[in-house]
Design a protein around this nucleic acid. Structure first.
Length: 99
RNA sequence: UGAGCCGGCCGGGCGGCCGCGGCGGGGAGACCCGUCGAGGAAGGUCCGGGCUCCACAGGGCGAGGUGGUGGGCAACACCCACCCGGGGUGACCCGCGGGACAGUGCCACAGAGAACAGACCGCCUCCCCGGUGCGCGAGCAGCGGGGCGGUAAGGGUGAAACGGUGGUGUAAGAGACCACCAGCGCUCCGGGUGACCGGAGCGGCUCGGUAAACCCCACCUGGAGCAAGGUCAAGAAGGGAGCACGGGCGACCGGGCUCCCGCGCGAGCGUUCGAGGGCGGCCCGCCCGAGCUCGCGGGUAGACCGCACGAGGCCGUCGGCGACGGCGGUCCCAGAUGGAUGGUCGCCCACCGAGACGUCGCGAGGCGUCCGGGGACAGAACCCGGCCUACAGGCCGGCUCAUCCC
RNA sequence: CGGGGUGUGGCGCAGUUUGGUAGCGCACCCGCUUUGGGAGCGGGGGGCCGUGGGUUCAAAUCCCGCCACCCCGA
C-alpha cells in the first residue's frame, strides 16, 4: 500500500531545510513478523525503491506500508507489486494527493 | 558393538556487481582512499551492580526479598565444593533444604475416633434377670438380654490411627516387662573451619502432617532511571475550575516606666501557628514553606556532550579439587536516532530425496557421478555480571552399564 | 524504560480471597405442546481450567518458569 504527496500539493516542510529532495518512508508493523523479518522486508523495499526514485516527481514524499504477506514474498514479487502500485499512483490521478 | 551420563565449542565458507553507517586521511567542493561494522542468546526484562539526578537527622511500625554449610565475586536470587534427603544397577540427576514443645488456623469424604486423644463392633472380670442340661439338693456348666467397670490384641476406614516383630505376663490386655530393630532427646569420646558424620552410654519408652497457611527467627533493602543528567539554539498565549491566598504578638504614642495596660495603620521586618512539599507506605521528629491540584488551549521535539578503554578480550605462567584469583605479555573490537550493519548472482560444503545411472553384496543396504531441494533460533540502542527461554546441523573430551574378542 | 490485567464447554462470564462438589446465561441434541415453525415446559450431552514443573494426602485455586493477548504512564 502506497501513499504519495507531491511537491506541488505539499506545504513547505518546516522540519528540514532542503525540501526539494524526494523522501521515502516505510511502515512495517508488528503484524508482519518479528524484528528480523521486519528488517528484511524494509531493507528489500529500500533497495527496490532506490532504483525507482528517479521516476517520482521532484520533491515527493512517499510512504510505503508493508502488509503481513510481505514477510513471505520474494524480492521479485515485491518488485512486481511495487511497480503495480506506483503505476496506479502516477498514472491517471489528476490531483497531486492520492493513495 | 549397543544403550546412556556429563562437560566444552562451532553456529556455513569464498568470490563478483550494486549499496549503507562510524572513525582516520586527502580535497575548495562533488567526492576518493584506508579501516571497522550484531549474538550465544543481541531475545524475555527475572535479579545484581556501575553511572547520573533527587533525598540524607534519626527512631519506631510496616512492606518486600533471601533461607543447609564453607568458599568465589564489585554484588547477587548467580557460580564452585561439600553435607543432608529423594531417584537410578551405574556414570550421575533432582531439591524455595531454617523453625511445627512461641502462638493461631486447616486436615474434605470415609471412619468409633483426625490431635490436652477417644471407644463402634469386639474381648474380659463382676452383678441382675430369663430359660436349658446335669444333680435328691446346696449348686455347677453353658446360652440369651441388661448394667457398673477393665481393655486396646483383633475388625474395618483413610493420604495419615499414638512405634514394629517375637516372647513374658494377665480375667482379657497393654512398653506393664524383656530381647532385637526403627525413631527422639541428653551426656561423653573421636573426625571436620562448618553443615554434619562415626562410636559408646543413659533416659522415658514414642509427642501426626501442613510454614510454596498466617506466623516466628537470622540477614539484606532510600527513590528514580541515559526519554537519567548537562550545554547550546529556536519558539510560545493565555484562559478556566477547585482548595488555599491567612491568623496572633512586637516595634507608634500616653500612663505606672527593665514589663504590663489602653489606643490605632500594619506594605515591608522579626517571631509563632500554619495549606502544601522534601519524605513515592505510615507515625513521631527534622527541614523548606505561599502557593497547590485538575482539565482546556498554545509552542518545541533540532544540535552537541553523556557514548564506547571496560569488574575488557586473547596468550602464557603460578596458586587452588573447583568457582576464581595473582603476575607477565599482547590487542583496540559496532555506535544508529526517519534508527546503518544490506540487496542480488555464481561456486563449494554440511544435510535431505520412494529421482536417474554405474558398481559391490544372496539380501537389508553401502559407495561414486549427475539432477532437484535446502541453510536453526534470531537484530545491538547507556554499559557490565548472571538467570530463564528459543535453536537445523555438527565437532571435541571424559565417564558408566551390558555383551563379545584378545 | 517502568507498571498493571486477562486466559475456564462453541460464545460471554462466575468459581481462585479461605485448596477437596467445576457452575450460570445463550447456543446444541431429545421429548412434550402445535396442522407445522417460533416461543414455552421437561430431560440430556459437551470442559487436558493457556502451558511445563513443584509443594500437598489432594491444585482451576498456593509457588516458580514460559506462551499468547490487552491496557496504562514517561
Amino acid at each position: 500500500m502506497l501513499h504519495l504527496v507531491t511537491a506541488t500539493a505539499s506545504e513547505p516542510d518546516p522540519h528540514d531545510g532542503p525540501g526539494d529532495a524526494t523522501r521515502v518512508g516505510f511502515v512495517v508493523s508488528r503484524a508482519v513478523g518479528n524484528a528480523v523479518t521486519r528488517n528484511r522486508v524494509r531493507r528489500r523495499l529500500r533497495h527496490l525503491l532506490r532504483d525507482r526514485c528517479a521516476g517520482l516527481p521532484h520533491g515527493s514524499v512517499l510512504v510505503v506500508r508493508a502488509l503481513p504477506t510481505a514477510a513471505v514474498a520474494t524480492s521479485a514479487t515485491l518488485a512486481r507489486d511495487l511497480d503495480r502500485c506506483l503505476g496506479r499512483l502516477l498514472g491517471p490521478s489528476p490531483s497531486g494527493v492520492d493513495r
